[in-house]
Amino acid sequence: MRFEVKNASFSYKNDRKIFEDVNFSVDSGDIVAILGPNGAGKTTLLKCILGILKLESGEALLDGKDVRRMQERELFKRVSYVPQAKNTTAAYTVRDTVLIGLAAELSVFKSPGEAEEERVRKVLKELNIEHLIDKKCNKISGGELQMVLIARALISEPEVLILDEPESNLDFRNQLIVLDTLTKLSKRGIACIFNTHYPSHALQRANKAIILSEGHTVCGDCESTITAEAIEKAFNVKATINEYSDGGNTIKTVVPISVIR
């Protein structure tokens, strides 16, 4: 599997460019982090990748095929989307919510049955949330809901997982649970592309990064892309990158110091 974005640019009707000249490629097992200040177009870029919005120029290709030209059904059997948890709280049970992830597979007139329910149990178990199966989605915590939405995306066994700020609005523990899940999935060969407001998370988990910002979007290998200078340029803050050693692991963090005026 190879996912490519070439010379992508986007602007809303007659408005300033949201982003331009975005180039990157994703292979199986990659974790790609998309960073950028508020309004830089992170969510817009994800929607373009999903073929929901049309790029102004450039293209998003899945194995050489333009996502806008692919049948929706074919595309979304291979690519799954995890929206921001705060936007979705329909009052379904966790079981029913996760089953919705199979909509691209089942024909329009079919309902899921016993075999599909078995797959729900399997994917919930994999994510250690099988105890939630009969709970209602509007009665569980934000961290649990995020994991349920990931389960909904995973049940169709996609090759690419696209997540919009999966660790926003979560506490430390739940952030780590979500990030660990991404790492685990990438080891299984699933490519993950996610938006984040935390440069540290990108440094710790991703192998590729994109920093969107007006005029100087940078894409590439994570270590060389997320530097103190790049953060300063994109976010207009003075920043530093710290290293902390925990046993054998080196953990890098990006620390914002002060606003550049």
């Binding site: 929607k47 999903l50 929901i52 929706e72 059904r73 595309l75 979304f76 059997k77 690519v79 799954s80 989307y81 929206p83 936007n87 979705t88 329909a90 379904y92 029913d96 919705i100 992830g101 909509a103 691209a104 089942l106 329009v108 007139f109 079919k110 309902s111 899921p112």
Partner: peptide, 23 residues
């Protein structure tokens, strides 16, 4: 009646409906 299961998608956001491969 035939569409009953797929009607579960209706209250979701437009992006979610689209990314479920449904028209």
């Amino acid at each position: 009646f035939i569409l009953r299961w797929r009607m579960n998608l209706l209250p979701l956001t437009e992006d979610e409906i689209k990314s479920s491969g449904t028209n």
